[in-house]
Design a protein around this nucleic acid. Sequence first.
RNA 1: GGAGCGGUAGUUAAGACGGUUAUAACGCCGGCCUGUCACGCCGGAGGCCGAGGGUUCGAGUCCCUUCCGCUCCGCCA
Length: 607
Amino acid sequence: MSQETQCRDIQEDHKRFVEPLGDFNRTHTCGELTTADLKKEVRLCGWVQFRRDHGGLIFVDLRDRAGLSQIVFIPEVAPEAHEKAHILRSEYVLALEGYVRARPEGMANPNMVTGGIEVVVRSWRLLNTSKTPPFLIEDRLDPGENLRLEHRYLDLRRPRMNSALIMRHKITQSVRRYLDEGGFIEVETPILTKSTPEGARDFLVPSRVNQGEFYALPQSPQIFKQLLMVAGLERYFQIARCFRDEDLRADRQPEFTQIDIEMSFVNEDMVMHMAEGLMARVLRDVFGKDLVLPFPRMTYDEAMRSYGVDKPDTRFDLRLQEVTDIVKGSDFRLFATAPLVKAMRVPGGETLSRKEIDEFTEYVKIFGAQGLAWIKIRPDEWQSPIAKFLSETERAGLKEALGLEVGDIVFFQAGAPEMVNAALGNLRVRLGEHLGLIPEDLHNFLWVTDFPLFEYDQEEKRWVACHHPFTQAQGDPEAMVADPASARARAYDMVLNGTEVGGGSIRIHNAAMQRSMFAALGFSPEEAESQFGFLMQALEQGAPPHGGIAFGLDRFVMLLLGLGSIRDVIAFPKTQKAGCLLTRAPAPVSAKQLRELGLALREKPGE
RNA sequence: GGAGCGGUAGUUAAGACGGUUAUAACGCCGGCCUGUCACGCCGGAGGCCGAGGGUUCGAGUCCCUUCCGCUCCGCCA
């Protein structure tokens, strides 16, 4: 007889004990009982976490959302209840009546919140049986993620996952309270909307009524929230689902949630002030922490110069420094010819082993680096594969510029600026983690400002908007067209511990300016009109100056809970191949459905 | 589109050098047990080693193909 058969027989057999809930009304949660509740008559509901059947006494840890309570079946107290309790198995659901008493001398469990008490069962009823779960409902074990996602309802039953969703709820409610009190109006915008040419790939939904035409799911409510400003709402927010059909990452899902905010009659400082207040409110409401306001600000240029990335982790103090000029005459050809050479001094890094350095070298290759040059500053010598190429002048120059001291290691990267910054900037974070330089439990908020307005798209051979095409340029709009490379945007990102958690901008509220923006992006007037005519018409109807910001809620919650994957704060996430292992979405549809939509598949799946 | 890691009992893992009957822990089933708390003790069941093909006297182990999960690059205004 197979195990499965055995289990099924047992649980099938136990089903005859199942009773209806009836008018049973629970009085307490399993997590809340303490010695303050002694002698109380209580009614509890929950799931069997552990069963310890001594033949005589039977102990069960009963679990509900709030926690665990030990319940005990005692033959002398309730013979019937005790006799029946032998059938209890993991994850059976039950309801019980009993009384709270202190555990006998020396039997308290200091590891449990409710460890001082136990509930003596007078009577109980089995509400449902459970097949043996595919994995134990426990925090300290971690089954494979595919298994967890296939049985997500069981995975979420684990206290850690359960509480992540509860924390997410608390954060969301705190956000809602803050914004409501600040006069923001929550408005829902369409999920079925129009595809836009800029930005990420759209999810498309075919229209049955208008065959051959498609809705797009929104990448963000951007245009609608601007239209709400034109509509005179003045202050809007939405906890908005957004969709982007791009490849996934640990912190990226095809559908995700933004805290989307827009305000009229504001400048950058006003939006940032509001956003800082929001963060402070959430941290205080949910974590009892006070933030120092305002947050520090850093320009994009400074971030790229000193940290190599546009979302610097300033919890630790390693910095990149350009040394191009110092080594431009070097015998080391790579240094002499590279358009950019940057160095990162790591105090005390001289102790890094060859093996560790090799691992870092492999790491930077991910970002296109050919290798990783390094110098260990020893008392007697500079130990380095490239030491022999460095002249006395170059050594002196590096020593002075970088402030080198004995015990340091310096890493170098030379080549195209994007590669140099990406390689060293990411290596910087890796080193920070590796060397334990990052303080824990710190909420290090930072604004990054003065982003470029455009960046050049090599593939499309045109300028594209860094933020989005509705962002105002700083200063003279004419200059934006004349010199796109140096135009700056009225845009700002909020960074938390080296991760972008939000970004926004002051928008264009002038139709002519919006037209010239589209022109700068290479749209013909006709294209601009057909794609965004409705927006420009709206801007011509008394659009107020406005701006806003949007926060990635999932990522934000993940960071605040100290988790490494966005999937752990989303109830039913997708896998890296954008599938749902629970429902098996996406899935083929019937020929009839396709016919109704006027669609035909170019190839049959699987052929 | 690309790089890397992984898939062995219900679960988590060991086995990787090609060579007896594929290990362990937990879980599961049966028995015993009145103070356990990840209870304990005794006994037992449980495997197409992700799938397909190949090399070989012989494949969990080597080769090819493929599926699935994860991390990353590209991508993500």
